[in-house]
Amino acid sequence: MNSGGMNSRIGYIAFNTFREAVRDRVLYNLIAFALLLSGAAILVGEISIDIERLVVVNLGLTAVSLFGVVIAIFIGIGLVSKEIDKRTLYTVLSRPVRRWEFVVGKFFGLTGTLVVNTFLMAIGVFLALLYVAHKFEKMDVWVLVALYFIVLQFLIVCALALFFSSFSTPLMSAVFSFALFVIGSLAEDLRGFARITHGVGGWVATAIAYLVPNFSALNVISQVAHGDPVPGRLILYNTVYALLYSAMAISGAVLIFQRRNLK
């Protein structure tokens, strides 16, 4: 028997994770999203004057982000712990699969699910936009950038959920992940606060401000809703930042999981 490649094993695990999410009806959230957005579009179309686009982009992208974060946290915390509890992991790890390949495969599977989910939601956002504005404009391309940043947020949230679940209970992992998402969304304010604080408090505030994921830099929803462009440099910085932050969280999860006894 040939031993099979590392990349293909990660791919098989990722595909199985994606298939599990789809069959567990995770994508059913799209129905709620579609109802919310179409209702909002119809309502906005009737009552507002000239701010239809602003409202639809704001509401649509915020919903994409929140729906995705909830999925990322609630599936992310169970990615590995569920497999340990249900002992499905035993028959996987008794094969030529390394533990880090399993963790990375699960991560890719969930982020893949979220990318598909976001893609389908993005179609909804653009349809709602077309409904209220009757045409697409050049500035709508920045909505795509905002959606890309939202996907980068999901990468970090998934990685963090996976990291916390590698040593904590699912409930505590969910609490930690959600708390970090909220704090990270206020990261810019936290950094501002750190700058004006002195002494030990200043040091602590600076450490926390730079340690928590900077989700506020990844949130350009309000900016693109007003039709303002997103600088190319920010796209590059955010991409590198999100990839590095996720890689660090995944590495932490792998390091802990490598040593764990699967009792």
């Binding site: 099979g4 293909s8 199985n16 599990e20 028959t91 996987v92 094969r95």
Partner: peptide
Amino acid sequence: PYFYDHLSARELLNYFGQLSGVP
């Protein structure tokens, strides 16, 4: 043993075959 209950027996064996390097 407990396996992925979203899969059929055929899909599960195929998945494990992939992970075991069965061509």
